[in-house]
């Protein structure tokens, strides 16, 4: 029991929670503004992880230094997908249900393509590198440098995005778009430009999260899928399109996961995640923390 109360689990939950929150935030921005269900989101995380890995292995670049570059890279992938697959559909103002269904299938195709391109280019063998892995003892809790960095950077990103959404003119436009697409258009928001910003931000921070994850965990072409699932669980818990709810849910999921696994065994992790997932969808599809969704 002492173990449960120790800071060690708390720290692990905070690190995992901050990563979940950042990744899910990216997914939420893309879904909220465009109603695109990006099930290739985890693959973006994977690309970010590989970019950091190669930057470190080939150029000796610290992932922390490379973060902006990684963000721009995955943001550019997002722009490319937006321009080729979704822009025309969004401009045609199709019914939301149709958009959601076709985006799910399109992103599914994208996810297969990206996984296998990565596997072709980098082989399927998992890789890892060592960076900032010095262990610090703080208040009796052992923390590696890279996990501390992950926590700090993730929280900084969350704060920055929240500030951006609440202060900048684009951020306000993003929020308007999340709340009401048609009305946003009517009040003179340049919807296409705001969507571009959301895609850049959503894909960019997913890539950055991947770079952070790569410091402490093995990476492989197929690492993205669990992140896709976790981030869907998170944004559904928080209420689809609800930004603050999603961030809270990211931490909530991580705490449930870390503590439940500590209490039982790692075997139950997946049952737990999917159990929560199915339970919420069946009982409260509008999310634990969210308001009822507009029809």
């Amino acid at each position: 029991m002492d173990f449960l109360l120790s800071g060690q689990l708390l720290f692990a939950a905070l690190v995992l929670g901050s990563v979940y929150a950042v990744i899910a935030l990216g997914l939420n921005l893309v879904y909220g503004t465009m109603r695109l269900l990006n099930i290739a989101h985890g693959e973006i995380v994977m690309v970010g992880a590989y970019a950091a890995f190669w930057g470190f292995s080939l150029l000796g670049l610290s992932p922390l230094v490379a973060l902006p570059v990684v963000g721009v890279l995955t943001g550019a992938i997002g722009l490319f997908l937006y321009g080729t697959l979704f822009r025309a559909q969004l401009a045609a103002n199709k019914p939301v249900a149709q958009l959601e269904a076709s985006s799910l299938l399109l992103f599914f195709g994208v996810s297969i393509v990206m996984q296998n391109l990565a596997s072709l280019a980098f082989t399927a063998t998992p890789r890892a590198y060592q960076h900032l892995d010095t262990v610090y003892q703080i208040g009796g809790v052992a923390m590696t440098g890279n996990r501390i960095a992950t926590l700090v950077v993730s929280v900084a990103i969350l704060v920055a995005v929240l500030l951006f959404l609440n202060r900048s003119i684009y951020g306000l436009a993003v929020k308007a778009l999340i709340q009401h697409r048609d009305a946003a258009r009517v009040v003179g928001i340049n919807v296409d430009r705001v969507q571009t910003v959301s895609i850049l931000a959503g894909f960019g921070i997913a890539g950055i999260a991947g770079a952070l994850v790569s410091m402490a965990e093995q990476i492989s072409p197929f690492m993205g899928f669990p992140f896709t699932i976790a981030s869907f669980v998170v944004i559904i818990m928080g209420g689809l399109g609800n930004i603050v709810g999603g961030i809270m849910a990211g931490f909530l999921l991580a705490f449930i996961e870390i503590y439940a696994v500590a209490l039982t065994s790692a075997n139950f992790r997946s049952i737990l995640i999917y159990g929560i997932f199915v339970g919420i969808l069946v009982l409260r599809p509008q999310g634990l923390l969210g308001k009822a969704r507009r029809s």
Binding site: L85, S102, L106, F108, G109, S111, V113, N116, L117
Partner: peptide, 18 residues
Amino acid sequence: SPQIYLILLGLCLIGCVL
């Protein structure tokens, strides 16, 4: 090449949806 097979499959899926 299972990878190329899956890549083509993914592209076909995208093509059909679009």
